[in-house]
Design a protein around this nucleic acid. Sequence first.
DNA 1: ATGCATGAGGG
DNA 2: CCTCATGCATA
Length: 343
Amino acid sequence: MAPPGCFPGRYSPTYRSSDPRRCVPNPSSRILEDASLMCNSWSPRHNGDIFSGLNDGLLSRAEALAAVDIGKHQSGPQPGPPLPQLKHDMVYHHGVGGPPPHNARPHQMGHHGMEGLDMLDPLTSSSMTTLAPMGEAAPPHHQLHGYGAMNHVMNHHHHTGGLGHAPPAHLGHPAAALHPDTDTDPRELEAFAERFKQRRIKLGVTQADVGKALANLKLPGVGALSQSTICRFESLTLSHNNMIALKPILQAWLEEAEAQAKNKRRDPDAPSVLPAGEKKRKRTSIAAPEKRSLEAYFAVQPRPSGEKIAAIAEKLDLKKNVVRVWFCNQRQKQKRMKFAAQH
DNA sequence: ATGCATGAGGG
DNA sequence: CCTCATGCATA
């Protein structure tokens, strides 16, 4: 059972469903107040604002001042909401102009001679019967992707730009023509992601299906993945390293799936046993005004100290941890791919 | 498709 | 506490 590569259990039901977190931070009163003070009466949906551009800068400064201010007293000017709800998602311009961090992928999966396709062989479609979207016999539990462990290992390559960076740490296989440069090339990844999605759809498989099916590809250390991850892979909203690590796996699945599709090897079977209801994790929803403030702070100080975070949290009426996590997630976004990479 | 969250691993 | 890979919940 335990997939060979099963790693240290990575699941611990630590949900606090009764957490105060579930409540949406204070709604309006305060916010309106702030907005008024800021003399900004923008309209969320009506953002054809010509002001956004310059206000943006002002806002940042205002917030910067406020940030300093909160250390003393908390009665300073508040978040001005000039910025349109821009997709702050990846508007960053990662200065990756030069040295693409070609980190090695984990040896565990490095054996994927995939492109060389020297692995899809004997039992192509015999042993694995659930690559295609079909009823799941019985999902063990929650998926354990004993895959993360290795990612961490590989991530410590320090993809700092421009230093006399080390050589492509891929294992030198006898005749295995591994092409680190090709594998790590953002262009290639982008192209693959596109192809992958296209073909996946052609197979009539959903992102979630792919995620689950991955577990059926008994690749060492490779478990199931969520719809989220598959989606992010397709949309390139993963870190460069993550993309590189996942590519071989998804490619393996794709080839397998297509092979099986050819053989029409499927059985009309059982309805999946939907897992019993578990604890529901609640998501905090940070209101737009607060979010704008956070973004403004982030613009001037992406990595506020613990105290700073606490201050910001108090000012915005959010829990410190929520703010901390928000900053963490924000930093992660900046590191994601998409068009961010050198282009 | 994405926002907020968890947890491993490293300081 | 951070970074990263990932996931649940949700818009």
